[in-house]
Design a protein around this nucleic acid. Structure first.
Lengths: 116, 116
DNA sequence: GGATCGTAATGACATCCGTCGATGTGATGA
DNA sequence: TCATCACATCGACGGATGTCATTACGATCC
């Protein structure tokens, strides 16, 4: 198609990121790409015990309890939050590995190209 | 309402992340939370010159040129890609600051809680 | 100047996502 | 046992998003 006989620009190294890896990372980012969920993770992570129960989050946001629960489920399903039921209350805690995985991807020289 | 008379769990430190900051970061993450766009950024960043023209990306993905252009526009609008027209072709280059900003947020102790 | 190529913009469509109200469920306490 | 509390789930609605076909624009070449 069009076959100009020469490359229009420098060739890409090709390795880059596999489709599979991109889908995985995209799922993780999609779970984080929401202001409410971002603040949820931030709140939980910055809490003293590193965890928070749903009742606190319910008061921290101007949203319905159903919506809060929905967002927590999204974050839990993505592997970003751990869920633990203690007595009547349910506590959520951030899984540091998930967040550091994101940090690693975007601080890698292949993507950031800063240190190169 | 309900006034239980005692906190059901440990209090949150409160500072965490502002709504404004959360919206900004969410916009950035939303632009990245797509497998195609993730691979685009990866391809561009891992190219020899750190940039790529649309024609290359057109061949790298099994998508319409219009869709490719759309994704590039999203990434450019989010401040992730720089756009430069040289002759007939348009070159896109990653803006390292945008990616390192994401890396910084998710490697900060307030969010990752790893070093605490 | 006209034809052709590379890219962007537009409009349409299907699907996904955030939010809500209502309901369900399990544990606690009177 | 029954009422209440904490949380999850369901169904629905409006808006955002990914994709395409088509059109428009600017640069290059003959």
């Amino acid at each position: 198609m069009s076959d100009p006989g020469f490359a229009c620009c420098t060739p890409l190294t090709g390795s880059a990121m596999s489709s599979e890896q991109a889908e995985e990372l995209a799922a993780l980012l999609k779970a984080l790409a929401d202001p409410v969920r971002l603040r949820m993770v931030s709140l939980i992570a910055s809490s003293e015990a590193g965890e928070a129960c749903v009742c606190d989050l319910n008061e921290a946001f101007d949203l319905t309890q159903a919506t809060i629960s929905h967002h927590l489920k999204v974050l839990h399903s993505a592997g970003i939050l751990d869920r633990e039921k203690r007595g009547v209350w349910v506590y959520y805690a951030v899984r540091p590995a998930a967040l550091s995985a994101v940090a690693n991807v975007f601080s890698s020289p292949a993507l950031a190209g800063a240190s190169a």
